[in-house]
């Protein structure tokens, strides 16, 4: 007796005279729908997304469990993440325990800090304060209240803790940027703001020979300073 699998191929004359050929032909007709059922139905049933959407919440996913419809819960006021106690009030806010502006950077001001400061400044501050610190950023040009230029004498005199405090608590129309800027980043930005201020009032004799030559208007190969969109104010 041959198996059903082979018999599904009708070979005509070569099968002639074999006993039971008629019977297997009939069986073949019954096998077809069964095979179809076995072959296709699992595919259809298998099209569920349970593994795609497992019973757990992704960040900020919607949830019907909580009243406001969000799975991620807001932090309870006063929550302190491990390692973020913030005992050093001056470092965290720019104002010390007595409310006095911290006058000096709590870390070494080096190129790494300034680069980090520029990076954060360009992301979070430049939309309003402009990359040059003149307070004519794009959002201001689109109608936001113009902030004081960092080159204003009052701000040139300001100590770094003053800027850190404004970033931490906001000032006038400016919201607090504490959620976006970690304390160390606020100091980095403050350092960069001071670098921006210095860029407009650096004594010429502190410049390198190349730069001084460029200032004097001698034709040199010195690369042009990066011009910026808001640089004409």
């Amino acid at each position: 007796m041959r198996t059903d699998r082979i018999e599904t191929v009708p070979l005509g004359s070569r099968q002639a005279g074999r006993a039971g050929a008629a019977a297997t032909a009939g069986r073949r007709l019954r096998i077809a729908p069964v095979a179809l059922l076995i072959g296709v139905v699992p595919w259809l049933v298998g099209c569920r997304q349970d593994m795609h959407d497992q019973p757990r919440y992704e960040p900020l996913e919607a949830s019907s469990f909580f009243d406001n419809g969000a799975a991620s819960r807001p932090l309870i006021e006063g929550t302190v993440a491990r390692g973020h106690l913030g005992e050093d009030v001056g470092f965290e806010t720019g104002l010390d325990e007595n409310g006095a502006v911290v006058a000096d950077f709590p870390m070494a001001v080096d190129l790494v800090l300034l680069e980090r400061g520029r990076n954060r400044y360009d992301v979070f501050c430049s939309p309003c304060h402009d990359r040059l610190g003149n307070g004519r950023g794009m959002i201001v040009r689109r109608g936001y209240k113009q902030p004081t230029s960092f080159h204003d004498p009052r701000l040139v005199e300001a100590r770094p803790g003053y800027f850190v405090n404004v970033m931490t608590n906001g000032f006038g129309q400016m919201s607090s940027y504490a959620p976006q800027l970690k304390p160390a980043d606020r100091w980095a930005v403050a350092a960069y703001i001071q670098a921006l201020q210095l860029s407009r009032r650096v004594p010429a004799d502190l410049l390198s020979g190349e730069d001084r030559a460029w200032l004097a208007g001698e034709p040199t190969e010195v690369p042009q300073p990066e011009s910026d969109d808001g640089g004409h104010s």
Binding site: P10, G12, A16, A19
Partner: peptide, 11 residues
């Protein structure tokens, strides 16, 4: 026993 399928079904 007779053939079930004619030769032409081979095609």
């Amino acid at each position: 026993m007779a053939q079930i399928f004619h030769r032409s079904t081979n095609t």
